[in-house]
């Protein structure tokens, strides 16, 4: 990755070094299609690609308090409307999982809004609700867990993208460039959280991007705006008094699949060992 502020001499050395690598690689003709990683146009004076917003000044993060989630799915609804997510139940940027331990069972029963029972309860694939399917069962423990893209610090999805269509922004969000995405779906497979999906009508991969168009305008993501119980927390970690900074400071938080090495940036409170 080139840093535009580097002295040009270093960039040239880097360029020559990589050129040598390319020359070797070009003996296999196919490798030539992979663009080398330097020598592009020099950056302009503008330090931020978004108007009236400095992306070097923010460090966004997300919190989920699963002890508050009531499973109303208004977040899923809001997200669909806000982000032009396909209208059916099987494509979504964010979702809620329901974990139910029945008496005498050791494993949790897990379902989400796209479970056939829940689709039947809502009446259509365009509406979302959790069916009250355990009302007559003996429930030992049960809770809801909202899920979304973790905007990892070391995102596996970005590593595998062959075209540079998905990348990490400086303020901490993994974005997708619709125009450069070729729909190969490597990233869908690479994501350990199942946060990505392929949109067959557009031919591109989509996922949660913390409503980047909202947060760069000073608004909260649509799901946070819609959550009636404050189970979703969002803010800037550079601001020590932001909701997310307070949430992380005042709670014992954890992340999903820490062993994956992705360093997720969605922090959870109140989830169980089976949630991953």
């Amino acid at each position: 990755m080139t840093n535009p502020s580097d002295p040009s001499g270093k960039a040239r050395r880097e360029f020559l070094r990589r050129l040598g690598g390319v020359a070797v690689a070009c003996t296999g003709a196919a490798a030539c299609s992979v663009a080398p990683q330097s020598g592009g146009p020099v950056a302009g004076p503008d330090p931020s690609p978004v108007k009236d917003y400095d992306w070097t000044k923010h460090h966004w993060a997300f919190g989920v308090d699963a002890t508050k989630c009531i499973g109303c799915l208004r977040c899923v609804e809001a997200c669909k409307t806000e982000n032009d997510v396909p209208g059916d139940a099987h494509h979504f940027n964010t979702w809620i999982e329901r974990y139910v331990y029945l008496e005498g069972e050791t494993k949790a029963r897990i379902d989400s809004h796209h479970d056939p029972v829940n689709i039947a309860a809502s009446g259509s694939e365009k509406e979302f609700r959790f069916a009250n399917r355990y009302q007559d069962a003996k429930v030992e423990k049960a809770f809801f867990v909202p899920k979304l893209c973790n905007q990892c610090t070391h995102p596996a999805c970005v590593q595998v993208c062959p075209t540079g269509a998905t990348y990490k922004s400086k303020d901490g969000v993994v974005l997708i460039d619709d125009k450069y995405c070729i729909g190969c779906q490597y990233c869908v497979q690479a994501c350990p959280y199942g946060a990505r999906y392929f949109n067959p009508t557009k031919g591109v991969t989509q996922k949660c991007y913390w409503c980047y168009h909202r947060i760069t305008k000073g608004l909260r993501p649509a799901c946070v705006e819609a959550c009636p119980v404050g189970a979703r927390i969002f803010g800037d970690r550079n601001d020590k008094q932001s909701p997310i900074s307070l949430f992380i400071r005042n709670n014992r938080v954890q992340v999903l699949r820490p062993e994956s090495g992705n360093e997720p940036n969605v922090f959870y409170v109140g989830i169980d060992k089976e949630v991953s």
Binding site: T2, Q37, G39, A43, P49, Y167, L175, D177, Y209, A222
Partner: peptide, 21 residues
Amino acid sequence: YQFGHFRGKAVGEIAAKEPAY
């Protein structure tokens, strides 16, 4: 390559979308 191995302009394009809520 303006900011890294991606199209710098794409960030602004994503951020330019009008909020619905």
